[in-house]
Structure formats: structure tokens, C-alpha cells
Simulated assay, not measured.
Amino acid sequence: MEPIDIELLKQLCGIFAPSGNESALTKYLIEYVETQQDNWKTKPELIYGEEFQDCLILKFGEPTTAIFAHLDSIGFTVRYENQLVPIGGPEVESGDLLVGHDAMGPIECKIKDEDGHLFYDFGRGIESGTDLVYKCDFRETEEYFQSCYIDNRLGVYNALKVAETLENGLIIFSCWEEHGGGTVSFLCKWMYEKYKVKQALISDITWITDGVTHGQGVVVSLRDSSIPRREYVDKIIALAEASGVPYQIEVERSGGSDGREIQQSQYPIDWCFVGAPEDYVHTPNELVHKADITAMVTLYKYLMNNL
């Protein structure tokens, strides 16, 4: 099973990249790939630029399957008179620490929730339009990691670990997932029309529920608010079974991922959500079991070699 690169995961969780403001993480990933790729089994082609906005694609060999991992996190935008507007769906508690930067300098402030109306508590006014995110407090115990933005920096981490041994495939880092999506449609167009790639895995994080628990393996989702094509999902489950990697089955009525946008695109692309489960979702204290991280990376490597 895969060892965990704690420092890489910690760095990823601390990078400022709320929905619509992902460029710092994109630049980090480009630099990371350029410095690490000589140690990988296959050097990828890096694809990015204005036509891809802040998205990044790594192309390995002759791809038949794509991994999608969204870069963005939930957060907040400063409005007027100390008001905050959520980015995505943060679960807020008064006193949570937020960080950011405006024209007057760095910001570290507390959030106040007054009957569902959000405000910041800071010693000066913050420039309207400034994005703020949870302050990263990365913690480790014998069995768990806990931090803000494990959703979806763990999905990004997983993709980077798979990249180390990948020979054929696409790794696609998307944007805006937490706030309605918007990039996956043109990414689907690009990968289908250029390479005829018709199958995808969604490298994202799901929830601990009554049917999904810590330490029991990576989750293969049969459905959330969207329903992937069952023939493809059954293929993923058969491969998961053959791999010997611990996994869990998820069935939910709500929630979503980049898979929703793939399904709504005009292209016949199959998808399946495969990811570790976490507790305290969309808070500064997201909690994931180390064994589930290891299972996620190990199963992805197996799937990408066998799909």
C-alpha cells in the first residue's frame, strides 16, 4: 500500500484557491510537475493557458481514461459593512479564523454568524470583493489527518501520486466545482474531440454517513444527486474487487461532483466517483482516516492501469 507524503498534503491544504480564484494553486502545480516529472515513470505533456482559464491538464502517453480533480475550495467574499457572502457551502461557526489579502495588506480575522448572516471581525475595513478562506491548521494523529480543504486537496494529492507511475491517461485539474462548476464542459469537449477519451474517474472527497465509515477503504459511489451509467460503475467495482484494495459502496440522494457536469455535457463520457470519505465537511476541521487515503491512491493506480 502507498505511503503518505504528509508534507505535500499539508502544503496543498494551505494554498489559497477559493472558487474563481484558483490561479495560485495552478501555478504551484505547474512548478511541482516541472520539478518532479524527471522522477516519474512517464513525463507528461503539460497543457494550460488562456483557453483553459485556470485549469491544468497532464497528458500521459496514449490516454483512454481521465482523472478529474477540482482545485477550488469553499470560502467567502467580502461585501459591504463587514458582510461576508459564502463561496460554495461552508459550514460556519462564529470564531472560525479566516485569512486573505487586500490592497492594505494581509488579513486574519474571525467570522461571526448572526442568525445566518455572516460578518467578519477585524481591526479595519476589508476591501469589498476580497476573497477569504479558512486559516489552515493541519493536524495529525496516529490514524487521522484534520485540516480545512482536505476537500479537495486530497483529490489533487491523489492525482499527483498517481502521476508518478502513470503511463497512459489524462489528469485534469478543474475549477469552480464548489460553486456550481463551469469548466468541466469545455474540458470534456477538449478531451473527447482531441483524444476520444470516453471514461473518467472523479478524484474527490465524500462524506461519512450511516453507510460509509472511517478506516474501511476508499468509496466507490453508485450515485449521489446524479446517477452514472451502471455498466461502467459495475466495471469499476469489479476492478476494485480484483485489486484487493479495501473499498466501500456509497448510495446517496444528494451531493455532487465534477461527474454532474460530465453527465450534463453533450459527450458520451462515462464517469464514476472514487474517493476517500471525510467528516466535518466544509469546516476548518475536515477529518480523514490515513488508511482511506492509502486505499484511494492504491486503487486509482490499479484502475488507471486496467481500465
Rank of each mutant, 00 (worst) to 15 (best):
H117G: 00
A17V: 09
Q146G: 07
T64S: 04
E108S: 09
V85L: 15
Y232H: 08
A295C: 06
G88S: 06
S128V: 10
S19I: 00
E286D: 08
R139H: 08
V297M: 10
P86T: 10
K235E: 15
K27H: 10
D38Q: 10
D72Y: 09
L97A: 07
A240C: 03
Y144C: 03
T65I: 14
L187I: 00
I172Q: 01
G14Y: 12
G100E: 03
W271R: 03
Y80S: 14
D54H: 14
H282C: 12
G105S: 08
G116Y: 00
D258A: 00
I150N: 01
P268A: 00
E140Q: 12
V212R: 04
E278D: 13
P3H: 04
L8A: 08
P18Q: 04
G20P: 06
Q37W: 02
P284D: 02
I4Q: 10
F186M: 04
L132M: 00
K41R: 13
Y144E: 06
C148H: 05
I87C: 02
G89V: 12
M304D: 08
H282M: 12
G75I: 03
H117Y: 03
V92D: 03
D38K: 11
T130V: 00
S257N: 10
L166N: 01
L154H: 07
F145R: 07
G256A: 11
I111W: 01
I87V: 07
R223Q: 15
M191C: 09
G100L: 05
I237N: 01
